[in-house]
Design a protein around this nucleic acid. Sequence first.
DNA 1: CTCCCGATAT
DNA 2: ATATCAGGAG
Length: 217
Amino acid sequence: MTRKKIAELYARLHALDPEPKGELHYVNPFTLLVAVALSAQATDKGVNKATGPLFQVADTAEKMAALGEEGLTEYIKTIGLYRTKAKNVIALSRKLLAETGGEVPADRDYLETLPGVGRKTANVVLNIAFGQPFIAVDTHIFRVGNRTGLAPGKTPAQVEEVLERVTPPDYKLHAHHWLILHGRYICKARKPDCWRCPIADLCAFKPKTPPPAEGKG
DNA sequence: CTCCCGATAT
DNA sequence: ATATCAGGAG
């Protein structure tokens, strides 16, 4: 995609949503870290349903560690991959407690040493909790980057590298949310709503199926 | 590459 | 019924 088209793409997403926000619930960097760790292969709504009661009881590494694996499991049983997640969240809470006193460091290399925390989760925490211009590539952004031609890549790491390189500096802080929200509500995995897409004319993907029939208005 | 794994949309 | 959902580890 040309630099001109890329600038136009971001300008439109910006105009439509000047202050885009994520939909995972959290109250501090630690709860954001946990919420994102729980969100792998799960919906935001499902995660929020579980973290509501959970964070009321445990909103710090110390309290989370005190819950223990069995205690945490009772809160997150409704989330997919819950056994692995319970193990990881308790382990990362204990690790933070031992190594930083429970504080979440704004350091990507350190964050990636935590169990259950990879590149994507670390980038989300740095971007959302600490306001740093990193672009976390999740399933939505991976799809949007490839479909549109904005950031093609065979792996999330490649897509991230391209996004980092082609995204104008002024847009880097919000690029993550713009692209993820676009992917969630317009550029959907199964049936993308290209007919109401604000950047369709800039996009490499051309749908074969026509828009659904209008209800009588 | 496989495994993990319940809820929801289609 | 099945694809998908704010992935990460072995």
